[in-house]
């Protein structure tokens, strides 16, 4: 068993309205100095040892992320 983390982020050139909303809210709440916010999502998968990297990449690309507008990365972390 291993824990796999998949991070999905909007592509850098694509508008991120959620990140923009957070960035806009920070100064209103008194937090200064944050110049940009991008918001993505993180998946944590518990997988059998039989699942290879190619399968994980396929899961991320075909299902967890929308590759037209999002980038993704997969990494195995210590359980």
């Amino acid at each position: 068993m291993a824990r796999v983390v998949v991070d999905v982020m909007p592509k850098p050139e694509i508008l991120d309205p959620q990140g923009k909303a957070v960035a806009g809210a920070l100064p209103r709440l008194g937090f200064t100095g944050v110049t940009e916010v991008r918001q993505g999502k993180r998946f944590e998968l518990e997988v059998d040892d039989s699942v290879d990297d190619a399968t994980l990449a396929k899961i991320a690309e075909s299902f967890l992320a929308n590759p037209v507008i999002e980038d993704w990365s997969v990494r195995r972390v210590e359980p």
Binding site: P10, K11, E13, I14, L15, P17, I69
Partner: peptide, 9 residues
């Protein structure tokens, strides 16, 4: 990409 993301707000 040739797609755009909009922000209705």
């Amino acid at each position: 990409p040739s797609v755009q993301v909009g922000d209705p707000f």
